[in-house]
C-alpha cells in the first residue's frame, strides 16, 4: 500500500478485556500521515474501545499504543494536544454558549482565550452559525450541536482526528463542506480516523478501510483492494460478507410477517 513517509500511530498486540469479554484481540496496526481511515465494523466490534484507548480514556489494556512515536503510557498527556476528537454521543456542556464552550476547549488545547474565541467565531460563521454564537448550546438543533463538536475538534489544528459518526444530523450541504475539509486536511498530511455505519460515505472518502469484527481486523486496504479480494460491488456488500451476515432477506421477511400477523 502506498503511503506517506511518516508513521504516526502504531498498535502492537493491543488486547482489551471487559470482565470476561474479549473486546480487542491482539490488534496490530500501523497508520501513516495523510491517510483517511474508514474504521468500520458491526455494533460492539470494538471500534469505540480502540479510539478510547488511543485517547487515554481507558488505561487497562495490554499491548502497546504508540502515537507520534511515543508510547502513550509513558509520554504523559502532551500528545493529546495534536489530537482532535468528535464523540459519537454528542456529549458537551450544553448549558454553556458556543463561545464559552469553544473558548474553553480551545484553551484546554493550549490556545489563548482570545485566539480560540477569534477562530471559533470565524468557523461558526463558515457554518452560518454566527447568530447563535452567544446562545446556549442546549437550544441548538442536532445538526448545530454537531457543528460545534466539529469546530471544537479542529480549532487547535490537530494532526490526528478521531471522528465517530461526525456527520450525524448534518444536512447534505454541510456534509459536502465537511467532506471537502477532510480531503484538504489529508492532502496536508493530517491523519483521520473516520468511524461510521454509513458505508457509502466511508467508501467514498476513505483512502484505507479497516474492518473490525469480534475484536479482530478482518479487512485492511483501499476500497479497490477490498473489492478485488472479495468480488463484491459495494462496501456494504463487502461488509455483509466479511461479518458473515447473509440473512437480511430472511429477517426482513420475518419482520414483515410479524407486522401483518393478526393477533385477535
Amino acid at each position: 500500500m502506498d503511503h506517506g513517509p511518516g508513521k504516526i500511530l502504531s498498535l502492537k498486540g493491543l488486547t482489551k478485556w471487559y470482565g470476561e469479554k474479549l473486546v480487542l484481540d491482539d490488534i496490530d496496526l500501523d497508520v501513516y500521515e495523510g491517510q483517511i481511515i474508514g474504521y468500520i465494523g458491526p455494533n460492539g466490534a470494538g471500534k469505540s474501545t480502540t479510539v478510547k484507548i488511543m485517547l487515554g480514556l481507558e488505561a487497562s489494556y495490554s499491548g502497546e499504543v504508540e502515537i507520534f512515536g511515543q508510547n502513550i503510557k509513558e509520554s504523559g498527556v502532551a500528545y493529546k494536544k495534536r489530537i482532535g476528537y468528535v464523540p459519537e454521543s454528542a456529549d458537551l456542556y450544553d448549558n454553556l454558549t458556543a463561545r464559552e464552550y469553544l473558548t474553553f476547549t480551545g484553551e484546554l488545547y493550549g490556545l489563548t482565550a482570545d485566539s480560540a474565541d477569534y477562530k471559533a467565531r470565524l468557523l461558526m460563521g463558515v457554518f452560518n452559525l454566527e447568530d447563535v454564537y452567544d446562545s446556549r448550546i442546549s437550544s441548538y438543533s442536532k445538526g448545530m450541536k454537531q457543528k460545534v463538536l466539529l469546530i471544537s475538534s479542529l480549532l487547535h489544528d490537530p494532526d490526528i482526528l478521531f471522528l465517530d459518526e461526525p456527520i450525524n444530523g448534518l444536512d447534505a450541504n454541510s456534509v459536502m463542506v465537511f467532506k471537502e475539509i477532510l480531503a484538504q486536511l489529508s492532502s496536508q498530511g493530517k491523519t483521520i480516523f473516520y468511524s461510521s455505519h454509513i458505508m457509502e460515505v466511508v467508501q467514498k472518502i476513505s483512502s484505507r478501510i479497516l474492518l473490525l469484527n469480534d475484536g479482530k481486523i478482518v479487512a485492511d486496504g483501499s476500497f479497490e483492494q477490498l473489492r478485488q479480494k472479495n468480488k463484491e460491488g459495494s462496501l456494504e456488500e463487502i461488509f455483509n460478507q466479511l461479518t458473515g451476515f447473509n440473512e437480511h432477506q430472511n429477517l426482513a421477511e420475518d419482520f414483515v410477517q410479524i407486522v401483518q400477523r393478526d393477533h385477535r
Binding site: 485517547l55 487515554g56 480514556l57 504523559g76 498527556v77 502532551a78 500528545y79 493529546k80 494536544k81 489530537i83 476528537y85 464523540p87 454521543s89 456529549d91 458537551l92 456542556y93 476547549t105 484546554l108 488545547y109 493550549g110
Partner: peptide, 14 residues
C-alpha cells in the same frame, strides 16, 4: 457528570 470524560478527559489535561 460523565461528560467530563469526553469533554475534558480527551484533551491534554492530566
Amino acid at each position: 457528570d460523565v461528560r467530563d470524560q469526553t469533554v475534558i478527559g480527551t484533551r491534554p489535561v492530566d
